[in-house]
């Protein structure tokens, strides 16, 4: 599996104004995270809600931020998203690893993987799936959302069962 484009995503977002990358590790996003760690630009939180809280503080200090997480952690974060991020209109980019995309992924990911697209829709969070062939275009879209004060999600599908 070629996941080098995840490193490009990190570099691109950083070059284009995202100053902070806060989150909880996810194996689907490991190349993104390892690039950030290399550059000492990653903050690892204990839970996804905490990560969103820290990133929100950074945005309040006028510093554009991204929160990365697995979709299990996205499920953890729903109340924080509605009662903090959406309540105060905090422009964050969520980068979410989509476990349970494949029907034969590990069993703990099946349910959340299945409802993830509906969950995003229900919450009213606009999202795009990023792949090797479209990452630049979709990063531009996400950066634009941030600039106009909106939050949004970039989704990375888990396409292997390694």
């Amino acid at each position: 599996m070629t996941e080098n484009y995840q490193k490009n995503i990190f570099n691109y977002l950083q070059k284009n104004g995202i100053e902070n990358f806060v989150g909880v590790p996810d194996s689907t996003l490991k190349n993104f995270i390892s690039r950030g760690l290399e550059l000492k630009k990653i903050i690892i939180a204990t839970r996804e809600e905490e990560a969103i809280g820290i990133a929100t503080g950074m945005v309040l200090a006028n510093s554009p931020s991204l929160v990365f997480m697995q979709n299990a952690g996205f499920a953890n974060s729903i109340s924080t998203i509605t009662s903090l991020v959406q309540l105060y209109s905090i422009p964050l980019i969520f980068l979410i690893g989509w476990r349970g995309f494949l029907p034969n992924d590990a069993p703990e990911h099946t349910k959340i993987g299945k409802i993830q697209p509906s969950l995003l829709k229900l919450l009213g969070i606009k999202s795009k799936i990023v792949k090797e062939e479209n990452w630049e275009k979709n990063c531009d879209w996400a950066l634009k959302q941030t600039k106009i004060g909106k939050n949004c999600a970039l989704i990375v599908r888990r396409i292997s069962n390694e």
């Binding site: 809600e49 809280g53 503080g57 309040l60 309540l87």
Partner: peptide
């Protein structure tokens, strides 16, 4: 006013920046 538990996390984010 919402998001119980997160005041210290928000404070941390601001303090770092």
């Amino acid at each position: 006013i919402g998001s119980m538990g997160l005041a210290s996390s928000i404070g941390l984010g601001i303090a770092l920046k």
